[in-house]
């Protein structure tokens, strides 16, 4: 947990540095009131200052850190695959459209999460795809990504 917190502080300090560089290019004061760079500059400064303070308190052992691993055993890979599958879904939906992409995504996620039999996963995915289509397209009349298949 401690290592993870240190990494998050470093990321925040980097974000603060980026904010400071970018916002210093914008006007911070104007004739009437504050400039558009004022708030981002001050907030970048705040993020940086607070992150350094947090980092120092962690390194000095003053911050309360829960004594448990960041991830559950096997949890990290499960989350990684779930995120990767979602990314794949977003790429696929742009290309093939809602119906095929949603079906493939649901089936793949169900198979991965429960090592479900392909037949059961396909059945569940068809049901859920139709259910979502009914909600968004038929009930809410929302346009869905069409892709090259047109559906």
């Amino acid at each position: 947990m401690k290592k993870g917190l240190i990494v998050s502080c470093v990321i925040l300090i980097a974000l603060s540095a980026y904010g400071l560089i970018e916002s210093s290019r914008l006007e911070r004061t104007m004739k009437m009131g504050i400039g558009i760079g004022f708030l981002p500059f001050v907030m970048s400064l705040a993020i940086g200052g607070l992150s350094i303070a947090l980092l120092v308190s962690i390194l000095r052992g003053r911050a309360e850190i829960k004594d448990k691993p960041v991830f559950q055993p096997g949890g990290r890979s499960r989350v990684f695959v779930v995120v990767a599958l979602l990314m794949g879904y977003l790429l696929l939906i742009d290309w093939t459209g809602y119906t095929l992409a949603t079906f493939v995504y649901l089936a793949a996620t169900i198979v991965f999460l429960r090592r479900e039999r392909i037949f059961n996963a396909v059945l569940m995915s068809v049901g859920l795809t139709v259910f979502l289509y009914a909600i968004f397209r038929l009930w809410l009349k929302s346009p869905l990504p069409a892709g090259f298949l047109g559906i």
Binding site: V82, Y89, Y98, Y105, L106, T109, L113, M124, L128, F136
Partner: peptide, 14 residues
Amino acid sequence: HVILIPLILAISSV
């Protein structure tokens, strides 16, 4: 959860 997880992710994305 095997049903809930993909269902929520698909509902959120769409």
